[in-house]
Each structure stands twice: as structure tokens, then as C-alpha cells.
Simulated scan of single mutants.
Amino acid sequence: MVDIREWSRRDTARFLRVPGTEDDKYSRGVVALRTGSAAYPGAAVLGVEAAWRAGAGYVRYVGAQRAADAVLARRPETVAGADTGRSRIDAWVIGSGTDAAQRSDAETAQLREILTGPAPVVVDAGALDLVPGATAPLLLTPHAGEFARLQQNLGLQARSDDRPRDVSAVARELRATVLLKGARTLIADPEGPVIEMSAGTGWLATAGTGDVLAGILGALIAANRDAPIAEVAAAGAWLHGHAARHAAGVADGTVPGHPIVALDVAEALPHAIADLLS
């Protein structure tokens, strides 16, 4: 058995702060996203929206033109373009809304460059297969099916009766932080205890909310550059659930609430953050 740590509202609040008079867009964190595709441009929109709403000072989008057009139509303050060589990047988000089977050799090479760079990388969906051999600080965000494939590829035996042990084993094998999404989110790094928390509301189980989570995680990692990634990931996951509760009208726990879509969660982030900071 592995040690389990329950994550709380108070724990999350430590990773959020009100900008001061000395802050600028760079000190608040620079996030770059290489997400979305011609087939799934919405994933890019959701991740970028979430990064902005979670407090990023600067968001750059690098990806398919169709997705870039959709991002700029929704969030014109985003800087879109492939030239990141002169840009400071505090955290990357890659893979959301992409399919490894459809990835070109050029795209693979560009993703590998990110995965061997100095900035932390949130790795989702269609980029998870590239994690072996990566040297950047990593946060993997698989859902249950993607996690099962990771275990299989690593030759690790799954134990359905001990999911915390499974997540911890994958984190140790890959030397990365792993956030397993689900009704009970589990977060493990190679060294510490497994962090566990509830998703907060069943209304969160809807398409695109994982893309929103990835954007939140990128923003918080960029803003907390010296903090342990596992703890920042836990704060992002808790905030994601709290925003969903606000969006669904169940923040006080007294009513059943109502259906939401992923963009509702991103749009509720400022209210959720204000509540945490109050």
C-alpha cells in the first residue's frame, strides 16, 4: 500500500495569489499550448480559454491553422504562431485534441523538442506515447483508457483493487508526475505520497473538460515555477472541480445542480478563484 494524502481547499489556495504592483504579464506566467488539430480544433480553444481564465499572464498557441483561427476568434489576446524561439515559456501543454496515429514526422520531431527542453510540460492525450525518453519535467494527464495503455506499454501489471499503487508505479517508471483523471483523481510523483481528491460533481463528466484541466494545469505550473509539480497539479485539479461546481450551481452542496459543458467550467474559473482568495 502507498501513502495517501487528501487534498483540500486550503491546500489549493496556497498556489493562487493576487498580482501585486510589481507584477507584469511575464511574472504571472507564460504558457504555450501545442494542442488541437484540424479534426479537433475545439480542444485548443478550451485549453487556451482555461489558461487565460486560470490567471496566466501570457498565452501562446502553436498548432494547426484551423485551430489557431478558432483560438483567435475566441481569445484574440492570445499570441499565435510557430516562432517560439525568442519567447520565454514557463510551461507547455501538448497533446489535447490530437491523435498519435495521424501525427506527421515533423510534428513528432517538434513535440520531442518540447519534451527534451527546460520547461515543464503537461502531456495529454495524443502526446502520451512520446513520454519515454523525455527529459523535461513532466505532468501526464491520462484518463483511464490512456492510463491502461501506458501500463501495458511499460509492462506493468494493473491492479484494479489498488489504483494508487498503479499510479505510483507508473510515475516511478517514467520519472514523471502522473494525474489519473476520474471521479476520484489520483496524483503521484516518483517520490512522494499519492494525492487523492473527488471530482466534485458528476456534472463534470462531459466532453472537453479534460482539455480545460490541461489549460488550468499549464497556467498554475507557469505561475508556481519553484513548487513541486505534484502539488501544483493537485491544486489545478481541485480548482477544476470547484469551477465545475460553480458552473453547475452546486457550489454550496445544497441543490442537485444542472448540466454544464466544458466551456462553462473555463468561464467559471474567475469566480472559483475569487471564492478561494476571499
Rank of each mutant, 00 (worst) to 15 (best):
A56C: 12
R74D: 08
G36A: 00
E49M: 14
R28G: 14
S27F: 09
R88I: 09
V48C: 14
A51T: 03
T35W: 00
A38D: 15
V48I: 12
A44M: 07
V31M: 09
A64I: 05
R60N: 06
A70E: 11
A38T: 11
A38S: 14
D83G: 01
W52V: 06
Y58D: 10
Y40W: 04
A32P: 10
V59Y: 11
D90F: 11
Y58V: 02
R74G: 00
D83T: 08
D83K: 02
K25S: 00
Y61C: 00
D83N: 05
I89A: 06
A80F: 03
G81Q: 07
A80Q: 02
Y61A: 00
A73G: 13
A56N: 08
A50P: 14
R34T: 15
Y26M: 04
L46M: 15
G29L: 12
R28H: 09
Q65V: 14
R66G: 15
A70N: 14
V71P: 04
V71K: 02
T78F: 01
Y40K: 01
Y58R: 10
A73S: 13
V48S: 10
G81R: 05
D24P: 05
L72A: 11
A68C: 06
G29T: 13
A38K: 11
G36N: 07
Y40M: 05
A73E: 08
Y61T: 01
Y40S: 08
V62F: 09
A73D: 09
R34W: 15
G47F: 02
R86Y: 07
R86E: 13
L72T: 09
Y40P: 00
R88L: 12
A70M: 14
A43P: 00
V31W: 02
G42V: 13
G29H: 04
Q65G: 01
P41I: 14
L33Q: 03
A70W: 08
S37M: 06
R86A: 15
A39R: 13
V79K: 05
A43C: 07
T35S: 11
S37Q: 09
V45C: 09
A70L: 10
I89T: 05
A80D: 00
A56F: 08
G47P: 02
G63N: 05
A38M: 05
L33K: 05
A56W: 10
D69P: 03
R60A: 09
A73P: 06
A82Y: 10
A68I: 06
A39K: 11
A70C: 07
A80T: 01
G29R: 06
I89D: 11
Y40L: 09
D90P: 12
D83W: 07
R53A: 15
G55D: 13
T78I: 05
T35L: 03
R34H: 15
T78E: 09
V62L: 10
T84S: 14
S37W: 10
A54G: 03
T35N: 00
G81V: 08
A43Y: 04
P41K: 15
R74W: 02
I89Q: 06
V31T: 04
A70Q: 10
D24C: 05
V79I: 15
P76S: 11
V62H: 12
A39W: 03
V30D: 03
D90H: 15
A67Q: 04
